[in-house]
């Protein structure tokens, strides 16, 4: 290759230009995607006067953490000046059990649908799959009714149940496809070794499910953390999740719009999902690929 380069300078030149053009285009896209994040971050560190003075893109003249502190612990949310902190905790209390339970149940479903097949298992799977395609809005009223009957209306456990039920379709799909490629001989060997239904699951299948667990957890965490509709519909004062609180923060008017506080609040709301992606993003891609090739 280096030989052809030296013997043919025009071709080499053209290659360099094409490469430069490619990087230029990519750079434009990078800026395009990162600009909103940049604007949010920069302005969250500015005093309000500086924002009102114009130029959203400029770096702060005076760096201040006040907007962050305000957004976290003292900003007006609805009628209470609590900041986002209690709602952040609400969201954690909702997301952790919802993600854990839906992932575990999805794994058990996938295990049964592939390794303990019963007559009509295909139909059952098709029906679970159908749950993935039901729009959120359709289930609102029936769900409200069910939560009322169960006495869970307006509570965090109620929200956990909603997200668990809604997420089960996806988690089952993920695990079923992953376990379909899992050798059945291993299950049979474990049965002959005397392992029962749950021992096979805990000792053989689950320890080999790393990639698909990561995919499912990321998927479920992002969806449940970012959910607004269920939170807005089913939460009470003491169970409002982060997303709804952020909306309330932005819409609570006390005269002035505190853009810097709003920006800081928005970044706070997005932070957990960002962290999850940064930490396990490469497993996510790997897991999706594994599913694509094998499943």
């Amino acid at each position: 290759m280096s030989q052809s380069n030296s013997s043919n300078p025009t071709a080499a030149n053209r290659r360099v230009w094409l490469r430069a053009l490619l990087y230029a285009v990519l750079l434009v896209f990078v800026v395009y995607y990162l600009l909103p994040l940049y604007v949010m971050l920069v302005n969250s560190f500015k005093p309000l006067e500086e924002i009102r003075g114009g130029n959203m893109l400029a770096l702060p003249h005076i760096w201040t953490f006040e907007p962050w502190k305000a957004a976290w612990s003292s900003a007006q949310i609805g009628v209470q000046p609590t900041g986002l902190k209690p709602y952040f905790i609400n969201s954690i209390m909702m997301v952790v059990p919802a993600v854990t339970l839906s992932t575990l149940l999805g794994a058990v479903n996938g295990y049964v649908l592939t390794k303990w097949q019963f007559p009509g298992h295909g139909l059952v799977f098709a029906m679970i799959l159908l749950a993935c395609f039901i729009p959120f809005q359709i289930v609102l009223i029936p769900m409200a009714r069910v939560l009322g009957i169960l006495g869970l209306a307006g509570s965090t456990p109620g929200l956990v149940l909603v997200h668990l039920v809604y997420g089960l379709g996806f988690t089952t799909l993920f695990f079923r496809n992953y376990y379909a490629a899992f050798p059945t001989e291993l299950v049979r060997a474990a049965q002959m070794d005397g392992a029962n239904f749950f021992q096979v699951f805990w000792r053989i299948l689950l320890p080999s499910s790393g990639p698909i667990i990561v995919v499912t957890v990321i998927w479920q965490f992002t969806n449940i953390w970012n959910d607004f509709l269920f939170g807005a519909s089913f939460a009470d004062f003491d169970s409002i999740p982060m997303t709804v609180a952020l909306n309330n923060l932005v819409n609570s008017s006390t005269g002035v719009k505190e853009y810097n506080v709003h920006f800081a609040g928005a970044v706070l709301a997005a932070l957990p999902t960002l962290i999850v992606y940064v930490v396990s993003g490469r497993y996510f891609v790997r897991g999706l690929m594994a599913g694509a090739v094998k499943g």
């Binding site: 050798p183 001989e185 291993l186 060997a189 070794d193 021992q199 080999s208």
Partner: peptide, 25 residues
Amino acid sequence: AMVFQSYALYPNMNVEQNIAFGMEM
């Protein structure tokens, strides 16, 4: 006791644990 065509060794366990699994159960 059965020896499978694909050997069916538990991938998450080492050889010792593989052999011990049945006795453990």
